Amino acid sequence: MPPLLYLASASPRRSELLVMLEVPFELVLPRVEEQRRPNEAAADYVQRLAQDKATAGAAMAPRPLPVLAGDTIVVLDDDVLEKPVDKADGLSMLRRLSGRNHQVMTAMALAWQGRLEVVLVTTEVSFRTLSETDIERYWASGEPTDKAGGYGIQGLAGRFVVRINGSYSAVVGLPLVETEALLRRGGVLSG
């Protein structure tokens, strides 16, 4: 079946979730600078990144199809925890998240026919207290190196999560309910 959509994301998790919406898609991989502006609120930042990626993806798409893009950040004490830059950064993030609540913000943007729409989903996540052994072992697994906040809820770090309030799929990287509604508004999905 020919694609109805481009996904502007290198995230395998985002691709796996989009498959659940049963929309055929192809990837485009735009390069967008992910740099928070001075005094930029976390919610504004993640939405801007999603919009920038969708716009850049639309500019490079080989066919005039809608382009979906997303970005996910972890917010703790008003600090944005992105992908760890190195081991020390990753361990520090996990120590900070230990025994605490934090927010995971995922923004999804759709660019089509000169239009751009974005949705933001914020989910509250609670971690149990982590031991140094938990933290070191988890880092040694290699899993946290490419994930916002230094963890993946769908992987080994799932055992750290006491509860979530909100969308599990948004924490993984693509909020299914909200993305499906966005694709319907953009004419990608019918019904």
Rank of each mutant, 00 (worst) to 15 (best):
P2C: 08
L4D: 14
L4Y: 12
Y6R: 05
S9A: 03
A10D: 12
S11I: 05
P12V: 03
R14Y: 07
E16L: 06
E16I: 02
L17S: 03
M20D: 13
L21D: 08
L21H: 08
E26N: 10
E26Y: 09
L27E: 11
L27T: 10
V28L: 01
R31Y: 12
V32L: 07
V32Y: 02
E34F: 05
Q35I: 14
R36T: 06
N39T: 13
E40T: 09
A41P: 11
A42G: 08
A43L: 13
R48E: 10
L49K: 03
A50Y: 05
D52N: 14
D52V: 09
T55H: 08
G57Y: 06
G57F: 07
A58I: 02
A59W: 05
A59I: 07
P62H: 13
P62Y: 11
P64K: 11
P64F: 13
A69Q: 03
D71W: 03
T72I: 09
I73F: 04
V74R: 00
L76N: 04
D77G: 13
D77N: 15
V80H: 01
L81W: 06
L81K: 01
L81Y: 09
E82Y: 01
E82H: 00
E82L: 04
V85G: 15
K87S: 11
A88S: 12
A88I: 04
D89Q: 01
D89N: 02
R95F: 10
R96C: 11
R96L: 12
R96M: 12
R100M: 08
R100W: 02
Q103E: 15
Q103L: 12
Q103K: 13
T106W: 09
T106Y: 06
A107W: 00
A107N: 07
M108C: 14
A109F: 00
Q113W: 02
R115K: 15
L116C: 11
V118Q: 04
L120V: 11
V125H: 03
V125I: 10
T129L: 13
T129A: 15
T133M: 10
I135D: 00
I135C: 00
Y138R: 14
W139D: 01
A140W: 09
S141T: 10
G142W: 12
T145K: 09
T145R: 15
G149M: 01
Y151K: 04
Y151N: 05
G152Q: 03
Q154D: 05
A157S: 10
A157K: 08
F160S: 01
R163N: 11
N165D: 14
N165C: 13
G166D: 08
Y168F: 15
S169V: 11
A170E: 02
A170W: 00
V172E: 04
L176I: 15
L176F: 07
V177S: 09
E178H: 12
T179P: 03
A181I: 07
L182H: 06
V188A: 02
V188N: 00
